[in-house]
Each structure stands twice: as C-alpha cells, then as structure tokens.
C-alpha cells in the first residue's frame, strides 16, 4: 500500500494506463494474450527460487514463479506471437524491488532471437511512458536522474561490464558466488543511470533455459534490461534441446539440494514438448517495477495493493 491514500488512487490509475498500453502494443503487433494457471506439480527446477507449496494438495503442488512452464510449449503448438500478464510467486523475496507475489509480463516470439526482444523492450517502454506522461518527451525522471528513453538503448556484454567494473571475466572463470555478489555490488551501481542499459551474453552456467551462442558455447544468448538501477526484464533465445535441458534441470536440482531446498520432479511433459519447436525467444518483465519507474516510486509496495 502506498503511504497516502490519494497517491494510491493516482498510482492505480497510472498502473491501469500502463497495462492497457502494454496490451495494446502487443495486439497491434499480432500477439495474442494467453491466460495460464498459477500452480503446477511440476514447476521448472531453478536453484535460486524458493516456491510456495499448496497445503494438502497431492501430488505436491506449487504456486508458479513464472508462466514459462505453460507458455513455452505453446511455441510447438504453432503459436508464433503471444504474451501473458499475471501473478507470479516467489517465497521469501521481500525488499524495495521484491514482493513474494508480483505481476509478470511474459512474451514469446517464434523465429526470433534475443536481439528482437531487445527491440520489443525499447518500443514497449517508450510507448507506456508516452501514455503515462501524456507527452512525446522521452525523458523520464526517476530517483533524481533524468533518463532518456529514446531508442536504441545502450548494450554492454557481461564480459565487458565485468572486465571494466569488477576486474575479472566470468565467461572464462566460473565462480557463481562471486558473480552474484559482483553483479549486485559492482556492476549494477556502475551502469549508466541516464540511459536504459541492456546487460547481455551471460555465462552459459547462469542461464538454465537459454540457448548458447553458436560461435561461443561459453556464452548464453540471455539479456537483462536495467533502467534507473532497476532490473526490469530478463529474456533469452530459448533452449529447445530436451536432452540438454534435462541435464540442466538435474544440475539445478543438485544446487537446490545443496541449498537445503526440496528437489523438484523433472517436468517431463515440458521437456518432450520442446521437440520440434521453431527457434524462439521469450522475455519476462516485472510489471510492478515498470510502474515504479514510470511513477517515480521508490518502493514496490507503493505500486501494489
């Protein structure tokens, strides 16, 4: 809840305008909207996500941390462009940018890779800002910075960002703990604040569901968008190899065991649905965070009920 009731009213109206604009942006480009269930007994095993378990359900059923499980298989059903906007659940995530229940926009494109997703982000965010600000001025004020939203956004590879700001290269050196810490404490604070920035080409080990680059299998085709110090969206060219994906799921489960989390059943229906899928790309964007950015709110609670 916001700190004052009148702010909440204004924010809810702006939030509505943002949602309406996002949907319209996708409709205008031939996307269809999909509604996905919010629970499953075979969620995608990811080491870093703690799941809410639904009590008394048999077999063990969880609230989903993203709609990916239901959306990605649709690419093989012949759907080429689709999106969903809905709730996502992640246990124990609470902070200025985190809520255990938040709203996620996720979209997929067949016959496209992550560079197309970057283009989408630019268009989506600028059009949402134009509606909220009721002007054509691409400059946005957030957290005492003026941010120029006009495309193209800046793009920095993980290799360049880490070499420049952290003094090492996570593509050639595998140190997952140091990678997370340096990303938060060294890279994020060093990224330019007056422009949106794409951070791309993550180490292969830091992208469980992403395709690897053809020219360099140490690098995954994964991208994250940062605006005003907020990590706003994450996307990648989708891995469509069921065997490779299964191996990675086992690895994620191994990490979960190590962290004291329950291991999850390998989602076999999801794996077999990848067979014969066209090359595709998908991206997820935190809707609450986008509303924060476009309403100059400092805490995620201010923009959610």
């Amino acid at each position: 809840m916001g700190t004052c009731p009148s702010c909440l009213k204004e924010i809810l109206i702006k939030r509505h305008l943002i949602l309406k604009t996002l949907r319209q942006w996708f409709y205008d480009r031939g996307f269809i909207e999909i509604q996905t269930p919010v629970s499953s007994d075979t969620p995608i095993p990811e080491a870093s996500i703690d799941l809410f378990e639904i009590k008394d359900e048999q077999p063990r059923t969880y609230l989903l941390p993203s709609p990916e499980l239901y959306l990605k298989p649709l690419l093989c059903q012949g759907l080429k462009k689709f999106f969903s906007i809905g709730p996502a659940f992640r246990k124990k995530e609470k902070g200025r940018l985190h809520l255990p229940q938040f709203t996620m926009l996720e979209w997929y494109r067949a016959h496209a890779d992550y560079t197309k997703l970057m283009e989408d982000c630019q268009g989506l965010i600028l059009s949402a800002w134009k509606v909220v600000s009721q002007s054509n001025d691409p400059s946005l004020r957030y957290d005492n910075h003026i941010i120029d939203l006009s495309p193209p956004f800046e793009a920095i590879t993980i290799h360049d960002a880490f070499t420049r700001y952290a003094g090492w290269d996570p593509i050639s050196v595998r140190d997952e703990e140091r990678f997370d810490k340096d990303l938060v404490f060294k890279i994020e604070p060093s990224l330019p604040r007056h422009r949106p920035v794409f951070l791309l080409d993550f180490p292969a080990w830091a992208a469980s569901l992403s395709r690897l680059q053809e020219k360099n299998c140490q690098v995954s085709e994964r991208v994250e968008l940062f605006i005003g110090g907020i990590e706003l969206a994450n996307g990648f060219s989708e891995l469509m190899d069921p065997e490779e994906q299964e191996k990675r799921f086992h690895y994620e489960n191994k990490k979960r065991r190590h962290l004291g989390l329950t291991t999850l059943t390998i989602p076999s229906a999801f794996l077999s649905s990848l067979k014969g899928c066209p090359p595709s790309a998908g991206m997820a964007l935190g809707v609450d965070r986008l509303v924060m950015l476009l309403t100059n709110s400092t805490h995620i609670r201010q923009v959610s009920l």
Partner: peptide, 12 residues
C-alpha cells in the same frame, strides 16, 4: 537492511 537478488541468482 537491504534485500537484493540478481535475476536467476542467489538472494543477498
């Protein structure tokens, strides 16, 4: 106190 979590990474 501050909670941070890089995308796909561990909470800090």
């Amino acid at each position: 106190f501050q909670f941070s979590k890089p995308g796909k990474g561990q909470a800090l």
